[in-house]
Each structure stands twice: as structure tokens, then as C-alpha cells.
Design a protein around this nucleic acid. Sequence first.
DNA 1: CCATCTTTGTGCACGCGTTCACAAAGACAT
DNA 2: ATGTCTTTGTGAACGCGTGCACAAAGATGG
Lengths: 290, 290
Amino acid sequence: MATGRTHRPATRSRGIPEATVARLPLYLRALTALSERSVPTVSSEELAAAAGVNSAKLRKDFSYLGSYGTRGVGYDVEYLVYQISRELGLTQDWPVVIVGIGNLGAALANYGGFASRGFRVAALIDADPAMAGKPVAGIAVQHTDELESIITGNGVSIGVIATPAGAAQQVCDRLVAAGVTSILNFAPTVLSVPEGVDVRKVDLSIELQILAFHEQRKAGEGERVALPIEGGDLEPSPGGSRGTEGERVALPIEGGAQAGPMARAGQDTGAAAGGRQQGPDGDVPAVMPA
Amino acid sequence: MATGRTHRPATRSRGIPEATVARLPLYLRALTALSERSVPTVSSEELAAAAGVNSAKLRKDFSYLGSYGTRGVGYDVEYLVYQISRELGLTQDWPVVIVGIGNLGAALANYGGFASRGFRVAALIDADPAMAGKPVAGIAVQHTDELESIITGNGVSIGVIATPAGAAQQVCDRLVAAGVTSILNFAPTVLSVPEGVDVRKVDLSIELQILAFHEQRKAGEGERVALPIEGGDLEPSPGGSRGTEGERVALPIEGGAQAGPMARAGQDTGAAAGGRQQGPDGDVPAVMPA
DNA sequence: CCATCTTTGTGCACGCGTTCACAAAGACAT
DNA sequence: ATGTCTTTGTGAACGCGTGCACAAAGATGG
């Protein structure tokens, strides 16, 4: 999901499949709710329903952690909460910095779910000098100049990027150089990072577009009359069916530009943070900061 | 991968794999950037690098849409932008409502990337009467009472839920009843919806927890000395290693409560919106609204 | 102590997604 | 027109994730 799935297929860490890891927080949430209700034990069937997954899948997931259930009874809620928390690394404190305190950054800073999961907002960082010193969610915003010292000083290893897309790669590079090895990226850009750094992506625009795809499909099925859309049958001649642009042919422009400006598009692995142009949109995260 | 992945495995719509659909917006973004730079054509290799994927994967993805490339040359940027936009349904207008105008909801309302992708914020809805009439991002917030009339009046089929978790299912039910068939959910809850309704989930907390897992793993590999963590070897006796709770045994509580309060945990498919209790966290979306 | 009943843990098969590797297609030069 | 060179489109193999179905484990009752 949210999308976001720009995660290195990675090293099947400790034998626990990535898909299972992604579901553990789901189980943890359901278990926490049960715990607060003082429910002592829960069966795989019940817990699976609460987490919205298949019970067999849940049992298989738990089997990667060890044999923590009791046949004929189920799982001990408290014990499982602890085991999953430990497996996810939530029993320790994770200082986090948020870079880019715009609409979204501020909203994230106000998120109450950090502390209880072991995450602590160590600092808020923004490039706007006017923001420096202003308190957001009870924390004074600091200027980008202090990024490195903040990271090293607090031993931060997780960074959240909520800047415009144009600044994201640059911020990312600085975070990584300062020692951050896990990044949650809200900017609509593909971040390139060195080996060993994890990046997860959250992108509202992408999620909506995926929904639109399915929505269109649903609509097109009910009334396949008035809509000449529904293409895709290997018919590459759209002609002027759409009004946006006049003529569309497969090869209107031939010739040059094979490796000229093109080469840059593909190979901006690290140093391309310089010349990004401003698009009308897509250049800011799901939520326009500042 | 942020997210959110609570998406029905679904019907392999029109032969286009779900995984491919999820990548189309990525390609579209890269292509749009090239288009703005007036780049006429692009090879699969270059475009793949820009989108952060494998070139073979990209070619296979495009092959599901049809044969839009030219061997020896590459793909025509403008034409491909159009084809993908059409496939995703972005050539038409999608009115969207945002329910829950807190920190996050407001941030989403300010998002500039809506319009250019064919999404239009038709209305902002909040349950707080004090919010009604207040302009957010240039749009007056409307009260929840008007939810149904707004949906039907504007022909809205996509809804965004940014309410606290406690209200999410209820809001979801009302949206669906009013005609919404695609939902983007920011509340940390598993939404249950009838067949035919798509739900995508975005959850900051989950993303951070997944990062923490990998982060812990990295840390545990470098110095497997001072950390007695690194467990998982089928050793289910944690003892008192953690301070939160005293003793942890696999089966501290036996006996009753097999189907009493437990049954409710699993079976709250629709009408359970009533009795949710307030947890310390996790009860609000990634960003605490209001 | 034995029988029964519940629920876990998992072997197995299936399907999707990814990747490799290459033949076919077309551009371009001569 | 022919040859060379580039790049697409895809057949095929592989690996991961999912779900079924069932044997084993343990609780519970007599």
C-alpha cells in the first residue's frame, strides 16, 4: 500500500519476510486495543478479523517470530504485544527529525502517535529563516544550517522529509551524510540513496491516481455505451479522440537528442540536485509546505 | 510503499496487473518532467532510471498498455503522457471530498497537486459545528449533516477520510451509502466496506515502525555485543528484561473469556462504530485533526 | 487416564510479479 | 537496397507471498 512501496526488496532480514514485517504494526495495533480492553487471550481467527487479514496468513506471520501461541487457546495478548514491539524495535527510543515544516510538516509534528510507539521528535528543521525559532507543536523550528549538528548531536537515524520535491534530494543527501539511515519521504520524488539506507515513500497523488484507475474501470463497466474509452486493445492510433492536443502519432519527432539532455534524466544519482525546474505541481509533497 | 496497501487483490482489471497500475503514476511523473523540458523521446533505460525502476519491468508494464514504443528509438514522451493519463482516468474530472478538517485535512486541502491531475476538491467536511463556514484553502468547511447531499449533488465518487479513528468507520459507511466507491483512508483503522468499494490506506505510524524494524536490524548487526536483543531464536522466555511489565510467561492467564467480549473484536464489520474506547494514541490519523 | 474438542503451526500447491535474455523491429548510414 | 546498430517487446524461469487443508498439541471434561 499507501502507497508507498519504494522499498529495497532487501535482504529478507532475519528470515522475516518483508510482507510480514509490513503487517506486524497492524497486528500490534489490534493487540493494543485488546490489551486496553483487558482481553487476556485471542485466537488467530479473531485477531485476523480485527486486523483485516486472513487467519492463516496471520498464523504464518507469527510462526516467523516463534511459537508464541497455545493450541486450543490462542495467543496471550500482553505477551504478543511485547514480542512484536521488540521485534519491530519499538522497545527503544527512536529520535526523529522532520525536515520541511510547511503544512504537512507541521501536521506531522502535531501527531500524537509518536511517543507511544517509541518515536520522539528530536527536532523540526526548515530552510526558511523566518521559521527559525517559531514553535510548532511545542518545539522550536531550527534552521537547515544546523541539520548536521542536530543529527549527530541527538544520534538521529530516522529522518522525515516533507519539503518540496526540488529540495528533497539535497536534504536527503545531507541527512544521509550526517548519519541518517532510514528516511520517510513525503516529497513526490524518487530519492537515490547509497546502499544500506532505507527509504519509504508516502505519496497522496499516487494513491489518488490508483483509485481513479479503478474508479474509471468501474464506471466503464456499467455503461460501456457512451464511452469510447476502454481502449488498450493494441490499437495505437488514438487520432483526435481527446481534445487536449490535436494530433497524436507514434513518431512525430524523429532524429537527434538521443544522448544530449536525455542522459541527465537517467543518471542523476547523486549530484543532480542542482537544476530542477519548477513544475506547476508535483513539486510539493502531498501537502504544500509553506 | 507507504503505505498503505489495504487494497483488495481484486480482479486483475483489464489484464493490467495491480503492481503495474501502482507504477503508472511514477512513470507519468517522470514523463511530465521530461515533457516540460521539451524532451521528445526517451528510452526505457532512461525513463526507468528516472522513475527508479528496472528497465525490463518498465517495458513489460508498458506492454500491457499496448505497443507504444519504437524500436531503436524509444518512447514518444507526449504520446506516452497522454496514454498513461487516459489509462489512469486522469483525462476526466474527479470531484473529491475531504472529511475531517484537522491538521491533516487542512494540509490535504492545501495540496496543489490535485487540479493538475484531474482531481478537484468539491467540499471539505467536518463534524465540528464551530468549523462550519470557516474557509480552509479557500473553501468553506461544511458540516457533516450535509455529507449526503454534497456527495450526491456533486457526483462525488472518491472520498478522503482524515478523521480520528473512532469516527472513520462511521464516516466511511455514510460515504459509501451516499455513493462513494473509492476511499483514501488516513485514519489508523481497518475499514470494512462492501464489495465493489476500493480502499487505500496511508498510515504514517506503520511506515515508521517498518523503518524502525530495519533500523534495529542494521544496528544489531554492527555491534552484536552490548545488545542482548537480536532475539527470535525460538526462545520464548523474556523474563523481566523489559521494565514495562513485570513477568511474562507464555500462559499467565488461562480459563474463560473465549467468546465473550472476544467475539466483538472480530466481528465488528459494520455496526461496531459505537463503542470505541479512547486510547492514548493510534486513535487519530497520522496527523491529529483539531 | 482417556476421549473429545479447539486452535495452532506448517507442508504444499498455486499464482503473481520480477528478471533475464534474446529475437524481432525499425532507424540510420552507406 | 543492404548492413549495422539500437532498442523494444516478450518467452521463460525463478522466487515470493498467499491460502488450503491437515496433523500435532494441548486444554477440557468425564
